[in-house]
Design a protein around this nucleic acid. Sequence first.
DNA 1: TCCAGAGTGTAACATTTGTTACACTTCGAT
DNA 2: ATCGAAGTGTAACAAATGTTACACTCTGGA
Lengths: 224, 224
Amino acid sequence: MFDILKLSPLFSGLDTLEINLLINKVFHQIRTFSNQEVLAFSGEKVERAMILLEGKLQGEMVDFSGNSLKIEEIEPPQMVAAAFLYGPQSFFPVNLSALSDGKVLIFLKNDFTQLLSNDLRLLNNYLNIVSGKAQFLSRKITFLSFKTIREKIAYYLLNHLKPGTMLVFLNQSQKSLAEMFGVARPSIARTISELEDEKIIRWERNQVVILDLQLLRSILGRQL
Amino acid sequence: MFDILKLSPLFSGLDTLEINLLINKVFHQIRTFSNQEVLAFSGEKVERAMILLEGKLQGEMVDFSGNSLKIEEIEPPQMVAAAFLYGPQSFFPVNLSALSDGKVLIFLKNDFTQLLSNDLRLLNNYLNIVSGKAQFLSRKITFLSFKTIREKIAYYLLNHLKPGTMLVFLNQSQKSLAEMFGVARPSIARTISELEDEKIIRWERNQVVILDLQLLRSILGRQL
DNA sequence: TCCAGAGTGTAACATTTGTTACACTTCGAT
DNA sequence: ATCGAAGTGTAACAAATGTTACACTCTGGA
């Protein structure tokens, strides 16, 4: 476990022994979860710090019509809901559900606070995590503020372009993309068709080939 | 100045004398700005910590088509771009522009870091500010994820309902609302008309009267 | 008082997206 | 190898929103 934690942003810069010592100073537990399980509901109070050790989680907003907007996927050894543990409104902003079986390391809030105050490096790491989280959310807003599906796809592709190539690898289905974009799945497929007709991209199963980078960029108004 | 700072979230819990001592340990400066001035452009590196002392600022995203989405208005004595000073991507996510004349207190990043490490209370306050910021952004995403203008208006009104009354005071124009909602102004006006036709609200110049709270809530699917 | 500018109501029309339905493909498990 | 589930392409139609234009109202200052 400590080897995994060593790789986590929170314990970055500490060695296995130090991590071991720090963690054993406070109460902690390990909880397993299974695929599809909901670990927390939107609106629930955040009372525990959780670090994902194994498996995959996702945070998704479920609006009132039952539609969902996937905010992020969480993989080990990331913290869960880091930015919602402190601050004026410490409630889960999303439903937290499991995309596979897995394990999380859990601290109660008070124990976690003590952990942070025991080591300035941890505190500093945590500050960076929370800042990074805010920055992630900010980029999410940038993304959501694109009006058309065309723009969203262009932005997504340009941001995932494998450097030095004209390829974007897809590790999620169109359905999953549609959830992230907050749009209907056939609408994405239609826009992809249009982009293919215009010879701007070629969309294959697991990757996208950019045929005309200039045109793709021009969708976003010649920036980026 | 120290009296204003004492009220700020960052210096919360410290008295004027302590604030004075702390601040004078590090280099700092005061900068004035005038109405309409742009203090920082989106994408610019955040190298200074700024605390607004006087006046009003706004952060707005300008997308490539020239449309804008107003993210927030900042009033004294709040920090500016608090969540973007640290973390992996310390760039302004918005254009920062002045809505009036005013003054900001400025620290260089290194000096500010030193300030934080000199006093655990400051560090703790800062952590809360950044968390709060992430929470604010998260709520913004909730808002943007409403699909229809109807839902956005309903959500806005229910959140601004003056407690104990059926009134919502409007301190911004429909145009300004449209910018916040990220939609076209006539589209908002149309939806307002529809809600009035259905006797759900009465939209006057400076306030909105809720005529049927049940129906308004039902727009969001009987929650909230 | 009157005027200019900002804000508002509204209409016709264009564009984009959602909805639903169905056929086809891919891929893994049995 | 076959079956079935999940993913994909596509079409017709409905619904929501954007665009543009214009008339009207309010408000503050000359």
